[in-house]
Computed example of a mutant assay.
Amino acid sequence: MTGAAAEPPAAQPARPFTLAIDIGGTGLKAVVLDDVGALVADRVRVETTYPLPPEKLVEQLAALTAPLPSYDRVAAGFPGMVRGGHVLSAANLATVSGPGSAMDPELVKKWDHFDLAGALTARLGKPARVANDADVQGAAVVRGVGLELVVTLGTGVGTAFFYEGRLLPHLEFAHTPLHKDETYNDQLGERARKTVGNVRWNKRVRRGIATLRALCFFDHCFIGGGNARRIEGEVAPDVSLVDNTAGLLGGLKLWTGEHLGLNE
């Protein structure tokens, strides 16, 4: 795999330190990074539990990160539409018992326009910024050349577009049709992979990338997320597989990458 990779702990870490959080449908991860992206301590992880109202998530993140070294600011990637630190959609988290289960109408209401950045700031006592997880992962790996597409494959599917290094408005392709009446999430998410097997799932991934290539004529596509490692065989010259640590390392860009527009 190519792309961002975690740097080992630095001998003399440079401040400010960033608490980088990756919120996923199956796991919550966090790490503290120094000013150049080197690890200050080892990553921590716990399973995502359900049902998961916003307040419970904030408390779980506080407990997860409590053992980590002190930090100066917080950056979090969230699996849904985020604007100005407010959650607009939480398709995986607003469910009865996790991804693939029924949506909980009460949780949908609780997540709608929830100020996650504000809640994390209040609970953790440090300024926090929040963006879509695919946007955050992309910030760590794009090269700033032409139109670059980032696809994350995990519990669900995420996408982010960058043009000449600048993040474009977020689009939730995961919920649009890919094949017959099934969406990208239905076809390429973890539940689908377990159902149809890795061989058929790999064929679906290639079909999905080909569809996105025909749709937007990207110059390069980066595939990340936990299931990128399950892609078998050679990929096209305009496609790269990237390490899943980018989901955490991109958090630094929420504070240092003003040109990305992530902190606006």
Rank of each mutant, 00 (worst) to 15 (best):
S89D: 07
M103G: 11
K126D: 02
L107V: 00
F114K: 02
P99D: 02
L124R: 05
D115V: 03
G85V: 08
T121P: 08
R83M: 11
T121A: 08
L93E: 02
A122W: 02
E106Q: 14
L120P: 02
D104F: 01
L116G: 06
R123C: 07
D104C: 09
K109V: 08
L88E: 15
A91H: 13
G98I: 02
G100L: 00
G125H: 10
P99S: 00
G84R: 12
D112N: 13
W111F: 00
G100M: 05
V87N: 04
A117K: 00
K109R: 15
R123W: 06
T95E: 07
E106I: 00
D112I: 03
G118W: 07
H113V: 08
G100T: 01
S89Q: 09
G125V: 03
R123T: 14
L88Y: 15
S97T: 09
E106W: 04
G98C: 01
F114A: 02
R123S: 14
D115C: 06
A91M: 13
G80R: 05
G84K: 10
E106R: 12
P99H: 07
T121H: 09
V108H: 06
K110D: 09
F114N: 05
A119Q: 05
L116E: 02
S97H: 14
G118E: 05
V82H: 05
L93S: 01
L93Q: 05
G84M: 10
T95Y: 07
K109S: 11
E106D: 13
L124A: 04
P105R: 12
S89N: 12
W111P: 06
E106L: 10
R123P: 09
G80I: 00
L116F: 01
R123M: 07
A90H: 00
N92T: 11
S89H: 08
L93D: 03
T95Q: 08
T95N: 09
V108K: 11
